[in-house]
């Protein structure tokens, strides 16, 4: 048990996320601020890479965090064993899927983002190798062929989630997650080797 004197800003930064949710559920807003500080960037990037409008993305992020705020007590009683991050991303995924159902899935923003990276890379290298250039083109065209579900699986994997956690977030079977990642890897493999 943590001594009351230790519950200051320093301690909040060191605490596990489930404990922070419990503290927030008892009415300490600082615990939420700490959770938000840790995950706001990750959640926002995850959403932004899958929806083409910045404004829509902000709306989805807003709805995600408001759901966290409103379910603080429920999290304490129903999800004590669940990892906070998995729970948070599941909420974000659900908001995203609701959006896709209403308005259709968006253009691949991840594709555009990587295009920018590659464009910058080419401009900094005075004479890019022809082979490398071809591989970059291949990477971009491969990314463009991925389905939203495959792109999402890659983004969650990059975020550090295991197959089981991705399955939990996306409400899919673990085998489905693995096959999505396998498919993505098969299409991206050649290009990825370039960027080692």
């Amino acid at each position: 048990m943590i001594h009351a004197v230790l519950i200051n800003r320093f301690t909040l930064r060191m605490m596990q996320e489930d404990a922070l949710m419990q503290i927030y559920a008892s009415g300490d807003a600082r615990a939420f601020e700490e959770l938000y500080r840790r995950h706001k960037g990750g959640v926002f990037s995850f959403l932004r890479r899958q929806c083409d409008s910045f404004e829509v993305c902000e709306e989805l992020a807003h709805d995600t965090w408001i759901a966290v705020i409103r379910q603080a007590l429920a999290y304490q009683s129903n999800n004590s064993s669940a990892q906070f991050k998995t729970w948070l991303y599941r909420i974000a995924h659900n908001r995203l899927v609701d959006h896709w159902r209403k308005y259709g899935s968006s253009a691949n923003v991840l594709f555009e983002e990587l295009s920018d990276v590659i464009a910058n890379d080419e401009s900094t290298n005075q004479q890019p190798a022809i082979e490398s250039h071809m591989q970059l083109e291949e990477l971009l065209s491969s990314l463009a062929t991925l389905s939203p579900e495959q792109t999402e699986a890659i983004l969650l994997k990059i975020e550090g989630f295991s197959h089981a956690e991705i399955a939990e977030i996306t409400s899919a079977k673990q085998e489905t997650v693995k096959s999505r990642l396998r498919y993505a890897a098969k299409h991206l493999k050649l290009s990825m080797e370039f960027y080692a």
Binding site: Y24, S26, G27, A29, E33, K40, H62, W65, I66, I69
Partner: peptide, 18 residues
């Protein structure tokens, strides 16, 4: 957006405290 979310969290925390 940050301000909106943190403000909502503070309002809710008052209810949770009560």
């Amino acid at each position: 957006l940050d301000n909106q979310i943190l403000k909502a969290a503070r309002i809710e925390s008052e209810k949770l405290k009560a």
